[in-house]
Amino acid sequence: MLTMLEEGPAGYLRVMEPDMRVVPVKFIDAVDSTLMHLRHQKDMVQSLSPQVEPHFPSLRQSAVVHVNYKTARRILLTRGPGQDTDSGWWLTDLDDNAGSQDPTRFFKTSLYQLGVDRPDLAKFFAVPSGLQVAVDNASIGVLGPDGELKQIPGSYLS
């Protein structure tokens, strides 16, 4: 999350966070969304067995998304190694079979923009490199190099 400190009334410091509703970023006097996203991302990763460590990207980093990313119902999120301004995330529309191999059907956007447009996907942002998240409406699976990772019974993801 992007947060900043700002002088508030009577000289007190306040924490400002993005409203997660508009681009460009509009900061508001709150930390609710920051804490909620942190908790969801952490709980999401801790729902997996075998356990993996979360890798929290910055909302300033980019993701590569399919042109249908705003409306796609069947999505594959793939996390590769990120560096500098690249989070390593790729979002593919599983219903666009022919277009999944067409580079002109993909473009870069910020993770902030992706979170604004698809708040349902923000909980996956801390999934580490080398894993994929398959989302098919309410069905969610996390895939690793050796197959599907199990969801711990009673966990956030399950």
Score class of each variant (00 low, 15 high):
residue 96 D to V: 05
residue 3 T to W: 04
residue 44 M to E: 00
residue 76 L to F: 00
residue 21 R to V: 09
residue 157 L to R: 00
residue 23 V to K: 08
residue 141 G to E: 06
residue 30 A to L: 07
residue 2 L to D: 01
residue 70 K to C: 03
residue 82 G to P: 05
residue 58 S to G: 04
residue 98 A to Y: 15
residue 56 F to L: 07
residue 11 G to I: 09
residue 108 K to I: 03
residue 5 L to F: 13
residue 70 K to R: 15
residue 113 Q to T: 13
residue 156 Y to Q: 05
residue 127 V to Y: 02
residue 22 V to M: 12
residue 60 R to D: 09
residue 25 V to P: 02
residue 73 R to W: 04
residue 141 G to D: 12
residue 65 V to D: 02
residue 29 D to V: 08
residue 116 V to T: 03
residue 69 Y to K: 00
residue 154 G to E: 09
residue 134 A to E: 12
residue 150 K to H: 10
residue 111 L to N: 01
residue 41 Q to F: 01
residue 71 T to H: 14
residue 74 R to L: 07
residue 86 D to P: 03
residue 9 P to G: 13
residue 78 T to V: 11
residue 8 G to H: 07
residue 130 G to I: 04
residue 111 L to R: 00
residue 24 P to A: 07
residue 48 L to F: 03
residue 108 K to P: 04
residue 1 M to E: 10
residue 138 A to N: 13
residue 139 S to E: 15
residue 141 G to K: 12
residue 123 K to Y: 10
residue 81 P to T: 14
residue 141 G to C: 09
residue 50 P to W: 06
residue 78 T to H: 06
residue 147 G to H: 13
residue 115 G to I: 02
residue 134 A to Q: 12
residue 56 F to Y: 12
residue 142 V to L: 05
residue 6 E to H: 08
residue 119 P to L: 01
residue 71 T to Q: 14
residue 69 Y to A: 01
residue 109 T to V: 06
residue 79 R to N: 04
residue 97 N to M: 15
residue 48 L to C: 01
residue 126 A to C: 03
residue 6 E to R: 14
residue 66 H to W: 04
residue 40 H to A: 01
residue 119 P to F: 07
residue 71 T to M: 12
residue 12 Y to L: 13
residue 85 T to G: 10
residue 102 D to V: 07
residue 113 Q to D: 05
residue 117 D to I: 00
residue 130 G to F: 01
residue 79 R to F: 08
residue 119 P to R: 01
residue 151 Q to N: 12
residue 104 T to Q: 12
residue 12 Y to R: 13
residue 116 V to F: 04
residue 111 L to V: 00
residue 62 S to K: 12
residue 6 E to M: 11
residue 40 H to F: 03
residue 101 Q to K: 15
residue 6 E to Y: 13
residue 15 V to R: 07
residue 102 D to R: 04
residue 22 V to A: 10
residue 84 D to K: 09
residue 34 T to A: 07
residue 67 V to K: 08
residue 86 D to V: 06
residue 74 R to D: 10
residue 156 Y to S: 00
residue 104 T to V: 09
